[in-house]
């Protein structure tokens, strides 16, 4: 059975698609056969970030409606053999997703031997987001260190544990908290919520902290998941997070401001 992991947040623009692309790539790089599904019907973005937008012929909605087979719609990633992308439809809306259709696609992927299925959820708590989380075994909840994002993540955690299939069966969806766009300098100045605060409010196990990093935007624009940028802090932090998702014990890094040498300080001032 494939493990179904939803990447969700409630709030928009916090880094769900960036996270989906990097985590699915990271799992594939570790040798696991992985599929990543874009549930954001009508606002498809995942294919852009994964640089497959010119190869989209059929999409998720076509497969649900029986207009194409799953094999026809799955796009193989060019960077690793183990990763396949199921893009969203740009011309439809979220009502095109039916629970039976989504379940059939997930079962078919599982039968095809996929070990992990990453569901990239749209923002909000409406039908699209609900369909993305309903079948999940685990959830990566993405939050930015600010109050409105944390509040929305709390809401989505409540929905996960009350409305998902697991919840209906009396089980719990395993929760993972991923804090993105974290800036330790601003936390030290009291301008941003700290990791401890967010962890305390959400009472959820921390999967990782992705530091605010210019390489994230660059990677998105180039169509390469940031996890491939092995020099960048964000790339390293995502690699750590994937390791933890697979059960590795890795210490969290980039939580405190870096100590700048006297030379760096002088250089920065004069620049």
């Amino acid at each position: 059975m494939a493990k179904i992991i939803v990447v969700t947040s409630g709030k928009g623009g916090v880094g769900k698609t960036t996270t989906s692309s990097s985590i699915s790539s990271g799992l594939a790089l570790r040798g696991h056969k992985t599929a990543v599904i874009d549930f954001d019907i009508g606002l498809r973005n995942l294919d852009l970030i994964m640089n497959v937008e010119r190869r989209v012929v059929y999409d998720f909605v076509n497969v649900i409606n029986g207009e194409a087979s799953l094999k026809q719609a799955l796009i193989k990633d060019k960077r690793t053999d183990n990763l396949f992308i199921l893009p969203a439809s740009q011309t439809r809306d979220k009502d095109a997703l039916t629970a039976e259709g989504v379940e059939r696609v997930l079962n078919e992927l599982s039968d095809m031997g996929f070990e992990y299925i990453i569901c990239d959820s749209p923002a909000g708590i409406e039908h699209g987001a609900f369909m993305a989380l309903y079948f999940a075994d685990e959830a990566v909840v993405v939050a930015n260190p600010e109050v409105s994002s944390v509040r929305d993540s709390d809401r989505i955690l409540g929905i996960l544990q009350s409305k998902s299939r697991k919840a209906e069966r009396g089980e719990r969806v395993q929760e993972h908290l991923l804090i993105t766009r974290y800036n330790p300098e601003r936390v030290a100045k009291g301008e941003m919520l700290g990791v401890k605060d967010v962890e305390e409010i959400l009472a959820t196990k921390l999967l990782g902290v992705i530091p605010e990093c210019e390489t994230v935007l660059k990677a998105s624009n180039q169509g390469t998941p940031v996890i491939y940028d092995t020099e960048s802090k964000a790339g390293k932090a995502y690699t750590d997070a994937v390791g933890r998702l697979l059960g590795d014990i890795i210490e969290h890094r980039y939580l405190t401001p870096e100590h700048k040498t006297l030379f760096q300080r002088l250089f920065r001032r004069s620049a």
Binding site: R151, D152, D154, R155, L157, G158, I159, Q161, S162, R172, L202, A203
Partner: peptide, 8 residues
């Protein structure tokens, strides 16, 4: 025994 989340 679980947190009562926003909206619940």
């Amino acid at each position: 025994d679980t947190p009562v989340r926003s909206g619940q």
